[in-house]
Design a protein around this nucleic acid. Sequence first.
DNA 1: CAAAAGTCAAATGTTAACAATCGACCGGGT
DNA 2: ACCCGGTCGATTGTTAACATTTGACTTTTG
Lengths: 232, 232
Amino acid sequence: MPGPLDHLTIATQPSPALSATVVPAIRQMITTGALPQGAHLREAELATALGMSRGPVREALVELAREGLVVLRRHRGAQVITLTSEDAEEVYTLRRALERLAVERACGRLTAEHLAELDAVLDRMLRLDADYAPEVAVDLDLAFHDVLVRAAAHSRLERSWQQTRSQVAMFLHDRHQARRDFHEIAHPEHSAIRDIVAGGDVDAAVAFIDKHLVGAYDRLRAARTEAAATDG
Amino acid sequence: MPGPLDHLTIATQPSPALSATVVPAIRQMITTGALPQGAHLREAELATALGMSRGPVREALVELAREGLVVLRRHRGAQVITLTSEDAEEVYTLRRALERLAVERACGRLTAEHLAELDAVLDRMLRLDADYAPEVAVDLDLAFHDVLVRAAAHSRLERSWQQTRSQVAMFLHDRHQARRDFHEIAHPEHSAIRDIVAGGDVDAAVAFIDKHLVGAYDRLRAARTEAAATDG
DNA sequence: CAAAAGTCAAATGTTAACAATCGACCGGGT
DNA sequence: ACCCGGTCGATTGTTAACATTTGACTTTTG
């Protein structure tokens, strides 16, 4: 039965938030580069900095290790991962496998709400000008693919995507700092994906997302080799 | 330089094993049905039973939740997952996506050692007689696919597989208790996979593993509906 | 002077006690 | 008789102290 209090059912914090509040915080520090690759994370240090005990911090580090953002070594603590070219290859091939499944399922399940969300992201991409911040580009890019995965209505796929997502964010951040052409490429590419998935042709959609991700990987590799040449 | 102590480099426990010793223990209790679906797992209870404190047990439960074997609810503890037909659909579609990638990569990377491992598993399948124990069938089936995934040489894929692997084990256990035809089907099916992957034809291998998994899912579904009919 | 053994501080793994929260039971009111 | 509110026990979330291990520094010895 509908009542006058329905509109604040979501406003109430469903869970006051356990110690997992720190996971997003540390995750962002890593993906944005605030914590450089290879940085050593000490439990006690983080605990005092965040105003809590080592227990929750410890759990957070385990979670981040699950996402591949840090590596845990027995009695040696956590260290921000140092991403190699092989890591890029692994992340993007796995991502391809996951998103193929996502798009395959999304084709028949895309609701009007999902379409509206995709269009909202596309609109923000269209309005992006040349001096965008790398973080915004990463957020928009991932937000679009988040909707596709959510539209697949597959809880396990969603969890697997969340795990690779963070590493994709790290690569994207580096890539957009090296070459700033997101405002030129992003909208047309993702707009095409939207149209094909909305059309419902599964084979075409899978083929196109495949092409999109291969292209994204190529651009990432180009940016990395370029950066390596200027650095070294 | 070779010395007289080389032979016990492996004998020394690389890590005395942290609290993660308990993860395999609880995992097996769940996959074999010793802990029934829906069972409530209390931290203190497990801790005393395993002769340790709640800390390690807590971490183990987080890990098992990651693998989808238990569900954690805030202030309500852990509960063994109750697998529905939708869960089966999710697990097998995700598994298909992962193993397609695995086989795709394994085709060009299969070493002689990998082939020997596959043949060893196949040999054990061939020798299996009609009154096999369900656990043996599950172990053999998963062991074969483990080799394929390992041959893909993709650490992130391997981790994703390890996570879905446990849930596959639960389904397989149920399936082999309901219908005991593993000794008839297992060897020919897996032997064909071995030959195709060894041959190196990527497209054929992907198509075949796809067919294999669809067939496995169909057999699982048949066993489940059958069991539901006799139960209800 | 170099290499190996011994020592030590720092950081993590583990434990036990404290605090907060949820579900169940129980009583009173309509 | 049903429903609503309060209290209580049980269980998890969190904290702080203790034990163990690692890597580096120091010392010793050839």
